[in-house]
């Protein structure tokens, strides 16, 4: 049985969740998006992921659009509005901010993202994570996007931690197999960060 998608503890059935990833080439945006999609598929959800990256492999825009649902997905590749966002870099984030609305959650890599770059809608919940710093402390700066994803997952519960950690091997090509361990640690670090920063705790401080 697929897990029921939920947000902040409220159980809902037959919902569709759109999560947009943005950053620049080389930041691990596509790997993070793919990890979330794999985890959702492993839990039995219907999944669609559109990966948009240009000819510029390094430094150009890298975006990804993940749709998770319990029904067949008809959404277009680039979704019009998003329930969540994972923002690794501000350079190409503006169209992403525009897709967020009241109740959306945005995980932001504060190690890199310009504090001036913010969603237009004040109702968007920001989850600020120094993802690159945390990943660097782990000795795996290349896994910063997975720290950020882990925090997003812990905060939103979009997929279970087990499913997320379980796909760390599957998303890597054979020649990158050695990175699975450090990547899993990065996901764990993010999961811990996100769990300690749940909205209920924030409200009491």
């Amino acid at each position: 049985m697929p897990r029921t998608l939920y947000h902040q503890g409220v159980q809902r059935k037959s919902v569709q969740r759109e999560i947009v990833f943005t950053g620049i080439g080389g930041q691990g945006v596509q790997l993070a998006a793919r990890s979330l999609a794999e985890a959702a598929a492993a839990e039995g959800h219907r999944v669609q992921l559109f990966a948009s990256y240009g000819g510029m492999m390094r430094g150009g825009n890298s975006d990804s659009f993940v749709v998770i649902s319990d029904e067949a997905i008809t959404a277009p590749p680039v979704v019009g509005s998003a329930w969540g966002a994972v923002v690794m870099h501000h350079e190409h984030a503006e169209p992403v901010w525009q897709k967020l609305h009241e109740g959306s959650v945005a995980a932001v890599n504060t190690s890199v993202v310009d504090p001036a770059s913010r969603p237009g809608d004040p109702g968007v919940a920001l989850l600020e994570v120094p993802a690159l710093d945390l990943a660097t402390e782990l000795g795996a700066p290349m896994a910063a996007s997975l720290v950020l994803l882990g925090a997003f997952v812990a905060r939103t519960g979009i997929v279970g931690a087990e499913a997320l950690l379980g796909c760390a091997d599957r998303v890597l090509p054979g020649y990158r197999a050695a990175a699975a361990g450090p990547n899993r640690e990065a996901l764990r670090a993010g999961l811990s960060w996100g769990a300690r920063d749940r909205p209920s705790e924030v409200a009491t401080t």
């Binding site: 669609q48 559109f50 990966a51």
Partner: peptide, 9 residues
């Protein structure tokens, strides 16, 4: 391009 780069279950 959209279809080539869209992952589905």
């Amino acid at each position: 391009y959209y279809m080539a780069h869209t992952w589905v279950d």
